[in-house]
Design a binder for these strands. Structure first.
Lengths: 294, 294
DNA sequence: CAATCGATGTCGATC
DNA sequence: GATCGACGTCGATTG
């Protein structure tokens, strides 16, 4: 496919708000938020009507280069040797590796350069320079539907809050304000002795980050409580210390160690995901085995 | 395009390890680490040779449904009414909206179901059921090149380590072991007074997580030092406390507050990204302004 | 707009 | 394979 044809197709997609798919041999440059990159090969370029700009390789899930919604896309036909970097790199690679397959640009050949720019949070530009095209096509996609997801952390937390007895008898939810200036706690509760309990729920293996997060919440709550209560005996405060409970299907060993050093508790969470909503199957307190106790 | 043709194309892509692009009207279901359902709409399906499976809508960067590398892809032609959900939803939508354009499946119409399965870490299945196709094509992508990224955190950390004087006179690197059981520290150094310094570098705005990470490192180092040094006076330990320095271009207010509460230090990092490598332009200690000091 | 956090995060490095 | 942290993370929620 000719580069000029490709340009026409892409321009049409931009003006008509269509999905554009381009496959070809190209080099990509990015300069912006922080990093700048360079590479060459066969790629898939996806341009969505909202400006989303994705450059994919033939493996991996993530796009190798991208620009988010809102990017301004433009095209240009340019002489290959106007771009010194491209030419230089190309020459080097050609000498190094293969001279047979004519994939790279030749002398005086043209490039179709597709550019995606964004200025909003930071000046960002991504340039895709095609030297040959396998395909360039546009499509009109009608799709207003949004995804319905089951088994999110939020859903699990709501479920657990409705049945805190799973954790311990006498535990009840406490929905004063669940949001603090720093971060939000999953569930705030009170146990049968009236002690404040911060509950953090994770839908997958909990790591150190989950523990530090819980530590932060517990600390905040403690300060809060101190401020509220009479600022007298420290011993009493200790006895009435805020409890922190981490609920997760698994926990990494280091995280468990840190958790216990901090005096917090881990509950193993067993759940399953069914259609409209997930379901909590069990919750069981776990501690280090006695064998490990020295 | 006929569904049967589409099936042939996709099957061919799978057996020949090609990139496959499919555009059509479909419904998507997923069950695995979570579960989800996406009602009907026009979407782009990308199948890569390594099994990567991406379902894109016409906006947003991220795929709405996906499966990572290693997924096993298969196709199947199926009667539409075998899938109750699909049939029901479709019927509703048709009545509600349009009857003219024949986008949806008709009575007794067929579906092209593309399935991506994975069993390894967890059983996961994603099913895309097309009732009509706009396009289905395959491409051979040769691409051995990997990305070169400049300005990564690692690169910046290496640069900074080579010139710790930027932070403070007399600061020098200390490359004992930078890895601990929990996490790794970016730079370990010693100041002119011989105090241990943990330096955490972030290439972008530092948030609470960055601070908690640094807190963790400093605590580890303190324990370590206690173990090494004579376990005597606590006062001395305090005077010799391990310092923690956070270097980042920006820091959120809450993070700065927490940092100072923990007795750690923030340095504003100024850097630029040039071609082969980034460059550190400046580093300046910042504290809360006196006006804020109450 | 900034700040924060979840995610079917994904990806790479290291143990 | 498990663990851990970075990421141009993305995307959503909330003040």
């Amino acid at each position: 496919m000719h580069l000029e044809q490709g340009k026409t197709v892409i321009d049409s997609a931009i003006s008509q708000q269509q999905l554009c798919l381009v496959v070809g041999h190209c080099q990509v440059k990015y300069k912006g938020r922080a990093a700048s990159k360079l590479s060459q090969g066969d790629r898939l370029l996806v341009i969505k009507p909202d400006g989303t700009f994705l450059v994919h390789q033939n493996s991996k899930m993530a796009a190798i280069n991208y620009q988010g919604p809102g990017a301004i896309v433009s095209t240009e036909i340019r002489k290959a040797d106007e771009d010194a970097d491209v030419a230089k790199v190309e020459k080097t690679r050609k000498t190094e590796t293969e001279g047979a397959k004519n994939h790279g640009p030749q002398k005086d050949s043209m490039l179709l350069v597709v550019k995606a720019e964004r200025k909003k949070p930071q000046e960002e530009v991504i340039e895709v320079a095609f030297d040959s095209l396998q395909s360039a096509q546009n499509f009109s996609l009608q799709d207003d539907e949004s995804l319905k997801l089951f088994g999110s952390e939020r859903q699990l937390a709501d479920l657990l809050e409705q049945d805190l007895g799973l954790i311990e008898k006498g535990m009840r939810p406490l929905q004063t304000e669940s949001h603090f200036n720093k971060g939000a706690i999953d569930i705030l509760a009170q146990d049968k002795d009236g002690r404040l309990v911060a509950i953090e729920l994770k839908r997958r293996t909990a790591g150190l980050d989950a523990v530090t997060q819980l530590v932060r919440y517990v600390k905040q709550l403690s300060h809060r409580k101190d401020a509220k209560a009479t600022p007298d005996a420290n011993a009493q405060n200790k006895a009435n210390r805020v409890r922190g409970i981490l609920c997760a299907p698994e926990i990494t060993p280091n995280a468990l160690t840190m958790l216990e050093q901090e005096g917090l508790e881990y509950f193993k969470l067993d759940y399953e995901i069914s259609n409209p909503s997930a379901k909590i199957k069990g919750l069981q307190k776990k501690q280090k085995m006695l064998e490990e106790f020295r």
